[in-house]
Simulated scan of single mutants.
Amino acid sequence: MTIYGKVWLVGAGPGAADLITVRGARLLAEAEVVLYDALVTEDMLALCPQAVLIAVGKRCGLRSMAQPIINQQIIDAAAKYRRVVRLKGGDPMLFGRADEELRAIESHGIECAVVPGITAALAAAASSKQPLTRRGIARSVAFFTSSTAPDMPDQTTLPACDTLVQYMGGREAVKTARNLLALGHPPDTPVIVVENCSRADEHIYRLPLSQLEDGLAKCSGPVLMMIGAAMAAREV
């Protein structure tokens, strides 16, 4: 009978090492092994110098490790170590494939816990100093992504909400803009694009929806897009 250690799914936050939670940093310092995403920075990994590091990263649009293999590596690590951290970018429970990993962990009777992280949408709003909600203008927010499971077609419908936040939206920018314009959104609808959110090489771009239709060729890093009237520049 295999005796397993405990697994923690820890949110690394948007990128900057000092934006991880205190609990997450403590668990990294105590971990025996850390299985980490591709977007986790070297500064973040410096918080766990004692741990065995296993890269299990996935990057949108790039060849990467299949999710079932990642699941099995987590199980194998729990069979070998007592304290296992699965370090996931952002928050594990939002576009982090936590459901698949939790299912695999629980199917083996392994004890597990989840530590939340600052999701990219909130970090991007903070970096741009642009609230996602504004009294009298926007009281609802939708987080969405177009990517789906490998055997399913990409999602093309868009949520109906005052403020839209698209994760992993760089490659989908043109399609998103055209869909929104076709739905009747004004061409001058404000858009904020945040590339490499919270990192030293972060870039913030402000443009109208009509320009988003031209794409984001200037962006090479991970992109998050915030769209809606709440993104308009504040009048001073």
Rank of each mutant, 00 (worst) to 15 (best):
A233G: 06
Y36D: 04
I54D: 01
V84W: 06
I3H: 13
P116V: 03
G24Q: 02
I192G: 02
F143T: 07
R234N: 13
T189M: 05
K218S: 15
L102N: 10
V40W: 06
V7I: 09
V85F: 11
A51D: 01
T145I: 14
S64P: 14
S146A: 14
K88S: 01
D91S: 06
M93F: 11
V33C: 05
A29W: 13
C60I: 14
I137L: 10
L9E: 10
M1P: 15
Y4C: 07
A142I: 04
K88A: 03
T133K: 09
P49C: 15
A123F: 02
A17F: 10
E101R: 01
A217K: 15
A230P: 00
I192Y: 07
R171T: 15
D188P: 09
A113Q: 09
C197K: 12
E235K: 13
Q72P: 10
M65F: 11
V22L: 15
G11M: 03
R23C: 05
Y81N: 08
N71D: 02
V114P: 07
L87N: 08
M225D: 01
R83L: 08
Y205Q: 11
L180V: 00
V22T: 15
R139T: 15
I70G: 05
R103W: 02
S220R: 15
V85T: 05
A124D: 03
V84T: 04
V191P: 01
Q67W: 05
L62N: 10
H203K: 15
Q211K: 04
G61P: 13
L224C: 04
